[in-house]
Nucleic acid binder design. Structure first.
Lengths: 201, 201
DNA sequence: GATCGCAGGTGACAAATGTCATCGCCAGGC
DNA sequence: GCCTGGCGATGACATTTGTCACCTGCGATC
């Protein structure tokens, strides 16, 4: 019997995934949650064999949770289940010892399959996504460039970003300018879009 | 027996929702699809009692599909199932005679419940979303303002937007300026974000 | 027939944005 | 010890963006 923990913030989707996995004879769902910051405590209490994590979770994102989980419960294997297939996410996932990476538009059977594979110590990664990740590469942006792009995302002006990050407005513009040219954008909107889609933010 | 059509683009989620509904004794899924433009033809062939539609579908969005469905098969009731709870979507949904509107983070049981209610001729709408929709109101933007904001979204400069829409650059800036002030934004990025979140784009 | 709103446009202006060269400081790597 | 790269900053510059006043024309609507 494979003991499974499942973390997904949208209640109905989580319920539906549980219904899907309930059809499998060799699996048991030992925990269901909707917040990233509850993953480690719940896993320590329920000792699952496989943790199925969404990336976009409130409290703590799934990848950070996976990192802590690996440190505190290394025998629990992690499988990431995400709707957004951003190459950068895969890179980060591998760095935090995630064993499987499945996108939500893969066929439904792949989930149970994936859980079994991961429980057996194998890795499960969509080949298309690997190709995309290799093509895209890891982020060309420095830490501060990421900070500035993130702050720009909500429509803040250069001045407001500077205040938020305690920087000089000119410095902010330099970082933005660098970020724009690094990702190959035409302006900040473009740069934000490109970096988001790549999974660099 | 309630005959159900289900349209959802992410394969695994669709499979999971089907698994969820398969547990219900009084329902039968007569069609499963992943594209909006197949909804009407498939519905005409399978004659479902209730069509469960995601909004964000390739080919044709769920709301436009709902509109056509109501014209060509009025006895089929439509229930929208969406992950993004944008007030503007609800307004548009009611205009195209959608009978139910459920968000994906509602509890899983609500889906089967909702389908039964809608099949019985009742309406099903989340009260919180109604409140949000009344608060937000319908779009203050004119058709062209929406066009311009949409074009700006991909990071195009004023000049490029003008070329795309065959307008003068000055006109584009006027529309953008109007849109920014109407939605209460500080600049185009802000305006795009606000309008997106409200469901006006 | 007058008024209103939307589409489309022009010209002018101030402010914000993007780009560059150049500086200092500090941490790591060779 | 030297070099590199990230971080932070300054000043100058051209371009883009946002705003405003004002113009035309069209189709509703009163």
């Amino acid at each position: 019997m494979i003991k499974v923990l499942i973390a997904e913030d949208m209640h109905m989707i989580r319920g539906a995934l549980v219904a899907l996995l309930s059809l499998e004879e060799d699996m048991e769902i030992v925990a269901e949650l909707d917040r990233g910051d509850q993953i480690v405590p719940t896993a320590l209490a329920t000792r699952p064999d496989v943790a199925v994590l969404d990336i976009d979770l409130p409290g703590l994102d799934g990848l950070s949770a996976a990192e802590h989980l690996h440190e505190q419960l290394p025998e629990c294997r992690t499988l990431v289940l995400t709707g957004l297939s951003r190459p950068g996410y895969l890179l980060r996932a591998l760095q935090v010892h995630v064993r499987g990476f499945i996108v939500k538009d893969a066929p439904a059977e792949k989930l149970a399959d994936g859980i079994r594979q991961v429980a057996n110590g194998k890795r499960v990664i969509d080949p298309d996504l690997v190709a995309a990740a290799l093509e895209t590469g890891s982020t060309p942006l420095t830490g501060r460039e990421v900070d500035v792009l993130r702050a720009a995302e909500s429509g803040n002006s250069t001045e407001q970003i500077a205040a938020e990050l305690s920087l000089s407005p000119t410095t902010v513009r330099n970082y933005l300018s660098n970020a724009i040219s690094k990702v190959g954008g035409r302006n900040r909107i473009d740069a934000i879009r490109i970096a988001r889609n790549a999974g660099w933010l």
